[in-house]
């Protein structure tokens, strides 16, 4: 028996949008249990890469495989049950209840004419509770704060319950307590067999959470590896565009702007 195919695998991937080359010659794997933090400067192509990994943007070159199967071979609905993607800055032009907004995540699991049942609602409400939004079900999404909306979007993704999570800045707009709550929840999911790729700007929070790093340097250059290889001042400085200094607090490294 060979080992199961990784949740996500890329082969010689090249992703480009406009003039920005996000990655070139990108060979990367996400296995069950992996917590990958993606770091890089604004406009370096983090979101573009994530969308390409999710199959929402075409790649210039190379292949993306989910559980050993090339993305284009996946039926769209089955893929949606397998991998979830969190959009940056969700917006709501129409009024809708929080429960409706979260139930959206159940769509790929339902037949064309099926309605969401008690089980779906229970999953949605558990997801809201996990995001600290218990009791928000009947609120109108348009009356929520930015951070609450972000957590509703994450709850919808949790209701989708994929195995592979591609999260584009899930921590934006969140207060510290919610950031920790979100990170710990995804850590728990990874421990039960999910794979999580997360774009973040808070370096120290990301380092505290991740067990692997993906650094985008710009111009298609990248580095990926375990924390022991990449959580050092030099590669992080290169990825984040500002000199960093490492200090050690309670046994773990902390990076501060030099």
């Amino acid at each position: 028996m060979s080992a199961p195919a990784p949740l996500l695998e890329t082969r010689n991937l090249e992703v480009q949008i406009g003039r920005t080359i996000a990655v070139r010659g990108f060979d990367f794997r996400v296995a069950a249990g992996d917590r990958v933090a993606v770091l890089g400067c604004n406009g370096v192509g983090k979101s573009t890469l994530l969308a390409a990994l999710a199959g929402l943007l075409p790649a210039q070159n190379g292949a993306v495989l989910c559980s050993g199967r090339v993305l284009s071979d996946w039926p769209a609905q089955a893929l949606a049950c397998h991998r979830g993607w969190l959009a940056q800055n969700p917006d709501d032009p129409f009024a809708a209840s929080v429960l409706e907004a979260v139930l959206v995540g159940r769509h790929p699991w339902l037949g064309r004419f099926a309605w969401e049942g008690a089980e779906d609602r229970a999953l949605a409400s558990a997801a809201l509770q996990a995001m600290g939004l218990a009791g928000f079900e009947v609120r109108n999404v348009q009356t929520l704060s930015g951070g609450e909306r972000q957590r509703v979007a994450i709850a919808a993704l949790l209701a989708q319950s994929p195995q592979l999570y591609l999260l584009d800045e899930p921590l934006s707009h969140l207060d510290l307590a919610s950031q920790i709550r979100v990170l710990e929840h995804f850590q728990g999911l990874a421990e039960t067999g999910a794979g999580v790729v997360l774009v973040a700007h808070d370096l120290n929070l990301a380092l505290r959470w991740a067990n692997r790093l993906l650094l985008l340097y710009g111009n298609g250059e990248w580095a990926a590896g375990p924390l022991s290889d990449l959580a050092h001042a030099e590669p992080l400085t290169r990825a984040l565009g500002h000199p960093l200094r490492q200090i050690v607090s309670a046994g773990s490294p902390i990076f501060v702007p030099a």
């Binding site: 929402l56 089955a78 993607w85 959009a87």
Partner: peptide, 8 residues
């Protein structure tokens, strides 16, 4: 994109 990510 949200719709597409959900298989539409």
């Amino acid at each position: 994109r949200v719709a597409r990510a959900l298989g539409v």
